[in-house]
Protein backbone atom coordinates (compact mmCIF):
# COMPACT_ATOMS: atom_id res chain seq x y z
CA UNK A 1 0.00 0.00 0.00
CA UNK A 2 2.78 2.40 0.84
CA UNK A 3 4.63 1.37 -2.30
CA UNK A 4 3.80 4.54 -4.26
CA UNK A 5 3.66 7.41 -1.79
CA UNK A 6 4.85 10.03 -4.25
CA UNK A 7 2.00 9.28 -6.63
CA UNK A 8 -0.59 9.45 -3.91
CA UNK A 9 0.73 12.78 -2.67
CA UNK A 10 0.07 14.37 -6.07
CA UNK A 11 -3.68 13.64 -5.93
CA UNK A 12 -6.30 15.33 -3.79
CA UNK A 13 -7.03 14.38 -0.20
CA UNK A 14 -9.98 11.94 -0.76
CA UNK A 15 -8.19 10.20 -3.60
CA UNK A 16 -5.13 9.68 -1.45
CA UNK A 17 -7.24 7.39 0.75
CA UNK A 18 -8.60 5.35 -2.13
CA UNK A 19 -6.83 2.15 -3.08
CA UNK A 20 -5.17 1.88 -6.51
CA UNK A 21 -8.19 -0.19 -7.59
CA UNK A 22 -10.21 2.99 -8.03
CA UNK A 23 -7.65 4.48 -10.37
CA UNK A 24 -7.70 1.23 -12.38
CA UNK A 25 -11.48 1.41 -12.65
CA UNK A 26 -11.16 5.01 -13.82
CA UNK A 27 -8.75 3.98 -16.56
CA UNK A 28 -11.13 1.24 -17.68
CA UNK A 29 -14.08 3.63 -17.91
CA UNK A 30 -11.98 6.18 -19.78
CA UNK A 31 -11.06 3.52 -22.32
CA UNK A 32 -14.75 2.65 -22.81
CA UNK A 33 -15.65 6.32 -23.23
CA UNK A 34 -12.97 6.84 -25.87
CA UNK A 35 -14.25 3.79 -27.75
CA UNK A 36 -17.81 5.19 -27.87
CA UNK A 37 -16.52 8.62 -28.89
CA UNK A 38 -14.45 7.24 -31.77
CA UNK A 39 -17.44 5.23 -32.90
CA UNK A 40 -19.67 8.31 -32.78
CA UNK A 41 -17.24 10.46 -34.76
CA UNK A 42 -16.72 7.71 -37.34
CA UNK A 43 -20.49 7.26 -37.77
CA UNK A 44 -20.95 11.01 -38.31
CA UNK A 45 -18.14 11.06 -40.87
CA UNK A 46 -19.36 8.04 -42.85
CA UNK A 47 -23.03 8.92 -42.62
CA UNK A 48 -24.24 5.54 -43.83
CA UNK A 49 -26.84 3.03 -42.62
CA UNK A 50 -24.04 0.44 -42.41
CA UNK A 51 -22.51 2.28 -39.44
CA UNK A 52 -25.21 3.68 -37.16
CA UNK A 53 -24.07 6.04 -34.35
CA UNK A 54 -23.98 4.70 -30.78
CA UNK A 55 -27.10 6.57 -29.70
CA UNK A 56 -29.23 4.89 -32.39
CA UNK A 57 -27.94 1.49 -31.27
CA UNK A 58 -28.70 2.26 -27.61
CA UNK A 59 -32.24 3.31 -28.53
CA UNK A 60 -32.61 0.03 -30.36
CA UNK A 61 -31.39 -1.90 -27.31
CA UNK A 62 -34.05 -0.19 -25.20
CA UNK A 63 -36.78 -0.89 -27.77
CA UNK A 64 -35.83 -4.57 -28.13
CA UNK A 65 -35.67 -4.92 -24.35
CA UNK A 66 -39.10 -3.37 -23.85
CA UNK A 67 -40.60 -5.66 -26.49
CA UNK A 68 -39.01 -8.58 -24.58
CA UNK A 69 -37.54 -9.95 -27.82
CA UNK A 70 -33.97 -9.36 -26.72
CA UNK A 71 -34.31 -10.82 -23.18
CA UNK A 72 -35.92 -13.96 -24.55
CA UNK A 73 -33.30 -14.61 -27.22
CA UNK A 74 -30.58 -13.73 -24.74
CA UNK A 75 -31.91 -16.18 -22.14
CA UNK A 76 -32.10 -18.95 -24.76
CA UNK A 77 -28.54 -18.36 -25.87
CA UNK A 78 -27.19 -18.06 -22.34
CA UNK A 79 -28.81 -21.32 -21.26
CA UNK A 80 -27.19 -23.05 -24.24
CA UNK A 81 -23.85 -21.50 -23.32
CA UNK A 82 -24.14 -22.59 -19.68
CA UNK A 83 -25.18 -26.16 -20.45
CA UNK A 84 -22.56 -26.77 -23.13
CA UNK A 85 -19.88 -25.05 -21.05
CA UNK A 86 -20.71 -27.19 -18.02
CA UNK A 87 -20.79 -30.38 -20.07
CA UNK A 88 -17.51 -29.56 -21.83
CA UNK A 89 -15.72 -28.74 -18.57
CA UNK A 90 -17.00 -31.83 -16.77
CA UNK A 91 -16.30 -34.32 -19.56
CA UNK A 92 -13.04 -32.65 -20.60
CA UNK A 93 -11.77 -32.62 -17.01
CA UNK A 94 -12.62 -36.29 -16.49
CA UNK A 95 -10.88 -37.33 -19.71
CA UNK A 96 -7.92 -35.03 -19.02
CA UNK A 97 -7.37 -36.47 -15.54
CA UNK A 98 -7.62 -40.00 -16.88
CA UNK A 99 -5.18 -39.30 -19.71
CA UNK A 100 -2.76 -37.60 -17.33
CA UNK A 101 -2.76 -40.68 -15.13
CA UNK A 102 -2.74 -43.67 -17.42
CA UNK A 103 -0.05 -43.61 -20.06
CA UNK A 104 -1.69 -46.30 -22.17
CA UNK A 105 -5.00 -44.46 -22.27
CA UNK A 106 -3.09 -41.31 -23.14
CA UNK A 107 -1.41 -43.04 -26.07
CA UNK A 108 -4.72 -44.54 -27.18
CA UNK A 109 -6.69 -41.29 -27.11
CA UNK A 110 -3.94 -38.93 -28.24
CA UNK A 111 -4.71 -39.37 -31.94
CA UNK A 112 -8.41 -38.69 -31.36
CA UNK A 113 -7.46 -35.60 -29.41
CA UNK A 114 -5.36 -34.19 -32.24
CA UNK A 115 -8.24 -34.88 -34.62
CA UNK A 116 -10.71 -33.19 -32.23
CA UNK A 117 -8.49 -30.14 -31.89
CA UNK A 118 -8.20 -29.68 -35.62
CA UNK A 119 -11.71 -30.38 -36.91
CA UNK A 120 -13.30 -27.04 -37.89
CA UNK A 121 -16.22 -26.10 -35.63
CA UNK A 122 -18.43 -25.80 -38.70
CA UNK A 123 -17.91 -29.46 -39.61
CA UNK A 124 -18.94 -30.75 -36.16
CA UNK A 125 -21.99 -28.50 -36.20
CA UNK A 126 -23.14 -29.66 -39.62
CA UNK A 127 -22.53 -33.33 -38.78
CA UNK A 128 -24.37 -33.07 -35.46
CA UNK A 129 -27.41 -31.50 -37.14
CA UNK A 130 -27.37 -34.15 -39.86
CA UNK A 131 -26.99 -37.05 -37.43
CA UNK A 132 -29.08 -35.91 -34.46
CA UNK A 133 -31.60 -33.60 -36.17
CA UNK A 134 -32.19 -29.88 -35.93
CA UNK A 135 -32.76 -29.78 -32.18
CA UNK A 136 -31.26 -28.33 -29.02
CA UNK A 137 -29.52 -31.55 -28.03
CA UNK A 138 -27.64 -31.60 -31.32
CA UNK A 139 -26.73 -27.94 -30.89
CA UNK A 140 -25.33 -28.46 -27.40
CA UNK A 141 -23.47 -31.62 -28.35
CA UNK A 142 -21.88 -29.79 -31.26
CA UNK A 143 -20.65 -26.96 -29.04
CA UNK A 144 -19.39 -29.29 -26.31
CA UNK A 145 -17.50 -31.44 -28.82
CA UNK A 146 -15.74 -28.33 -30.07
CA UNK A 147 -14.61 -27.36 -26.60
CA UNK A 148 -13.82 -30.71 -24.96
CA UNK A 149 -10.44 -31.31 -26.67
CA UNK A 150 -8.95 -28.02 -25.45
CA UNK A 151 -10.16 -28.71 -21.89
CA UNK A 152 -8.61 -32.19 -22.10
CA UNK A 153 -5.24 -30.83 -23.24
CA UNK A 154 -5.11 -28.22 -20.45
CA UNK A 155 -6.28 -30.52 -17.66
CA UNK A 156 -3.94 -33.30 -18.82
CA UNK A 157 -1.02 -30.93 -18.30
CA UNK A 158 -2.29 -30.30 -14.78
CA UNK A 159 -2.76 -33.98 -14.01
CA UNK A 160 0.81 -34.66 -15.10
CA UNK A 161 2.08 -31.89 -12.81
CA UNK A 162 0.37 -33.27 -9.70
CA UNK A 163 2.91 -33.61 -6.89
CA UNK A 164 3.25 -37.30 -5.93
CA UNK A 165 4.72 -36.28 -2.56
CA UNK A 166 1.47 -34.58 -1.53
CA UNK A 167 -0.50 -37.58 -2.77
CA UNK A 168 1.71 -39.72 -0.51
CA UNK A 169 0.63 -37.61 2.46
CA UNK A 170 -3.00 -38.37 1.60
CA UNK A 171 -2.36 -42.10 1.40
CA UNK A 172 -0.09 -42.19 4.49
CA UNK A 173 -2.93 -40.67 6.54
CA UNK A 174 -5.51 -42.92 4.86
CA UNK A 175 -7.66 -40.02 3.67
CA UNK A 176 -10.89 -41.07 1.99
CA UNK A 177 -10.97 -40.99 -1.80
CA UNK A 178 -13.38 -38.07 -1.76
CA UNK A 179 -11.29 -36.01 0.65
CA UNK A 180 -8.11 -36.82 -1.25
CA UNK A 181 -9.75 -35.72 -4.48
CA UNK A 182 -11.29 -32.49 -3.21
CA UNK A 183 -8.67 -31.29 -0.72
CA UNK A 184 -5.40 -32.62 -2.13
CA UNK A 185 -5.86 -33.38 -5.83
CA UNK A 186 -8.25 -30.77 -7.24
CA UNK A 187 -6.47 -27.77 -5.68
CA UNK A 188 -3.39 -28.78 -7.66
CA UNK A 189 -5.45 -28.78 -10.86
CA UNK A 190 -7.10 -25.46 -10.04
CA UNK A 191 -4.88 -23.13 -12.16
CA UNK A 192 -5.35 -25.43 -15.14
CA UNK A 193 -9.13 -25.63 -14.62
CA UNK A 194 -9.26 -21.87 -14.37
CA UNK A 195 -7.34 -21.45 -17.62
CA UNK A 196 -9.64 -23.96 -19.33
CA UNK A 197 -12.74 -22.15 -18.04
CA UNK A 198 -11.46 -18.76 -19.19
CA UNK A 199 -10.61 -19.78 -22.73
CA UNK A 200 -13.67 -22.04 -22.74
CA UNK A 201 -16.19 -19.33 -22.14
CA UNK A 202 -14.85 -17.04 -24.84
CA UNK A 203 -14.75 -19.88 -27.37
CA UNK A 204 -18.13 -21.35 -26.49
CA UNK A 205 -20.25 -18.26 -26.80
CA UNK A 206 -18.89 -17.66 -30.28
CA UNK A 207 -19.62 -21.21 -31.37
CA UNK A 208 -23.11 -21.12 -29.85
CA UNK A 209 -23.97 -18.19 -32.15
CA UNK A 210 -22.85 -20.15 -35.19
CA UNK A 211 -24.87 -23.17 -34.08
CA UNK A 212 -27.95 -20.99 -33.67
CA UNK A 213 -27.42 -19.34 -37.00
CA UNK A 214 -27.20 -22.67 -38.79
CA UNK A 215 -29.99 -24.65 -37.23
CA UNK A 216 -32.07 -23.03 -34.50
CA UNK A 217 -35.10 -20.76 -34.70
CA UNK A 218 -34.30 -18.70 -31.59
CA UNK A 219 -31.31 -17.25 -29.77
CA UNK A 220 -28.96 -14.38 -30.55
CA UNK A 221 -27.34 -16.22 -33.45
CA UNK A 222 -30.72 -16.78 -35.10
CA UNK A 223 -31.66 -13.10 -34.62
CA UNK A 224 -28.35 -11.92 -36.08
CA UNK A 225 -29.08 -13.96 -39.20
CA UNK A 226 -32.53 -12.40 -39.51
CA UNK A 227 -31.05 -8.90 -39.15
CA UNK A 228 -28.40 -9.79 -41.74
CA UNK A 229 -31.05 -10.77 -44.26
CA UNK A 230 -32.77 -7.41 -43.77
CA UNK A 231 -29.43 -5.61 -43.70
CA UNK A 232 -30.37 -4.27 -40.25
CA UNK A 233 -26.95 -3.27 -38.91
CA UNK A 234 -28.43 -1.42 -35.93
CA UNK A 235 -30.08 -4.62 -34.77
CA UNK A 236 -26.87 -6.60 -35.21
CA UNK A 237 -24.86 -4.10 -33.19
CA UNK A 238 -27.52 -3.86 -30.48
CA UNK A 239 -27.59 -7.62 -29.88
CA UNK A 240 -23.83 -7.92 -30.11
CA UNK A 241 -23.22 -5.17 -27.59
CA UNK A 242 -25.60 -6.63 -25.04
CA UNK A 243 -24.12 -10.07 -25.40
CA UNK A 244 -20.54 -8.82 -25.12
CA UNK A 245 -21.53 -6.85 -22.01
CA UNK A 246 -22.93 -10.01 -20.42
CA UNK A 247 -19.71 -11.92 -21.10
CA UNK A 248 -17.66 -9.10 -19.57
CA UNK A 249 -19.92 -9.11 -16.51
CA UNK A 250 -19.52 -12.87 -16.07
CA UNK A 251 -15.76 -12.40 -16.26
CA UNK A 252 -15.77 -9.55 -13.74
CA UNK A 253 -18.42 -10.82 -11.31
CA UNK A 254 -17.90 -14.58 -11.41
CA UNK A 255 -14.55 -15.68 -12.81
CA UNK A 256 -12.27 -12.99 -11.38
CA UNK A 257 -13.66 -13.11 -7.79
CA UNK A 258 -13.59 -16.91 -7.94
CA UNK A 259 -9.97 -16.89 -9.01
CA UNK A 260 -9.05 -14.40 -6.30
CA UNK A 261 -10.71 -16.61 -3.72
CA UNK A 262 -9.01 -19.83 -4.71
CA UNK A 263 -5.56 -18.27 -5.14
CA UNK A 264 -5.70 -16.41 -1.83
CA UNK A 265 -2.98 -18.67 -0.41
CA UNK A 266 -0.46 -17.51 -3.03
CA UNK A 267 -0.60 -14.10 -1.37
Amino acid sequence: MSAQPHQRASTQAPASESPPARRDALTRSASLLVFVLVWHVAALAVESSTLPPPLTVFERIVAETVSLALPQHLATTLSRVIISFGAAMLIGTAIGIAMGHWRRLDLFLDGWLVLGLNIPALVTIILCYVWFGLNDAAAIIAVAINKIPTVVVTVREGARAVDPRLMQVASAYRLSRWRTFTRVYLPQLQPYLMAAARSGLSLIWKIVLVVELLGRSNGIGFQLNVFFQFFDITGILAYTLVFAAIVLLVEALVLRPLERRVTRWRG
Binding site: L166, Q168, V169, Y173, R183, W265
Partner: peptide, 12 residues
Protein backbone atom coordinates in the same frame (compact mmCIF):
# COMPACT_ATOMS: atom_id res chain seq x y z
CA UNK B 1 4.00 -39.94 9.03
CA UNK B 2 6.54 -37.12 8.94
CA UNK B 3 8.52 -36.80 5.75
CA UNK B 4 11.86 -35.19 4.99
CA UNK B 5 10.02 -32.12 3.74
CA UNK B 6 7.03 -30.72 5.68
CA UNK B 7 4.69 -31.58 2.77
CA UNK B 8 1.88 -29.28 3.88
CA UNK B 9 -0.93 -28.40 1.49
CA UNK B 10 -0.06 -24.83 0.45
CA UNK B 11 -3.74 -23.97 -0.21
CA UNK B 12 -4.88 -24.90 3.29
Amino acid sequence: FMFQEPRLMPWL
